[in-house]
């Protein structure tokens, strides 16, 4: 019989919800803290399924690659994790699929950012290719700020040697966060904040939001472009009233979308879905 593993390093609200949901449904699973673990002693064999929930994207990706080498089906796959973990890779993938997103440029030096800014215009946003929770985002209002931030980036190590620049989108105080499971959108919330960063990890307030046919169609295109069993997609409203994709997350946190607010038990749906994949693996 296949085993179901939930690997983690830090017990966030989401991991607790997942454990509880699996217990309530009688789904047999093993919760494995891999903080002090070592491959090849980490469990998992061909035919097993695993939810990889390490808080570090780097650790999660490494874990998924290793488990896949043994024939374990991981959620998400290491390929999808890699697509979503790097914003430049995600942007390229969305671009190839013709999916609307904020205009962007990628510079390889501080000098390159000057040309990027000339094309994008001010204000713009510089984001680290890897990262979340709104960390290290910089809204650049003019050339002086750009030069300062770009120079600082050159002293922050190799991960910051490629500068991802995005057009700043005036998003009227909110963005949308959609959660997709098994290719279908199951929740949409509006994240409201007076700050230009609208991550709930940074204090934005979540509200329920309806899933319109237009949003559903756009999310379907994102799903086709990225793949994956569970995704969280962040959308901005365009000035014309349409929608564009800001980011796609492949290892989503979902506490703000779960339960009372949306009426959807995301944790329950997720463990059921992963367990159902065991039968197919």
């Amino acid at each position: 019989m296949a085993h179901f593993f939930i690997f983690y390093t830090r017990l966030r609200t989401e991991e607790k919800l997942l454990f509880k949901a699996a217990e309530e449904r009688g789904i047999p699973f093993s919760a494995v803290n891999v903080s002090d673990g070592m491959w090849p002693d980490i469990p998992g064999a061909s035919g097993d399924v695993a939810l990889c929930r390490c808080v570090s994207q780097t650790q999660n990706s490494a874990l998924a690659v290793l488990l896949e080498s043994r024939g374990v089906l991981t959620v998400n796959s290491s390929e999808v994790m890699a697509l979503c973990a790097d914003k430049i890779v995600t942007a390229a993938k969305l671009e190839a699929a013709g999916i609307p997103q904020p205009g962007y440029a990628v510079a390889f030096s501080p000098e390159g950012t000057i040309e990027g800014a000339r094309r994008l215009g001010y204000p713009l946003v510089i984001k680290p290719a890897t990262g979340s929770w709104g960390r290290l985002l910089a809204k650049i209002n003019d050339r002086d700020a750009l030069e300062a931030v770009a120079e600082h980036k050159t002293h922050m190590g190799a991960a910051h040697s490629v500068l991802f620049m995005q057009q700043y989108v005036e998003k009227k105080g909110f963005d949308l966060r959609a959660t997709l499971l098994g290719g279908e959108p199951i929740t949409v919330i509006k994240r409201c904040s007076e700050h230009w960063i609208t991550n709930t990890a940074r204090g934005a307030t979540p509200e329920k939001y309806p899933l319109s046919p237009e949003i559903k169609a756009l999310l379907g295109r994102v799903q086709d472009a990225i793949g994956g069993e569970v995704l969280a997609v962040d959308l901005f409203e365009t000035p014309e009233g349409g929608w564009m994709v800001n980011e796609v997350n492949g290892q989503p946190e979902f506490r703000s979308s779960d339960g009372e607010l949306t009426g959807v038990d995301i944790a329950g749906r997720l463990v059921e879905h992963v367990w159902s994949l065991a039968a197919r693996n």
Binding site: Q57, A85, G131
Partner: peptide, 11 residues
């Protein structure tokens, strides 16, 4: 003490 947030943490 819980570790400080790292650069690649989170979704």
């Amino acid at each position: 003490e819980a570790p400080e947030v790292q650069e690649d943490w989170g979704e």
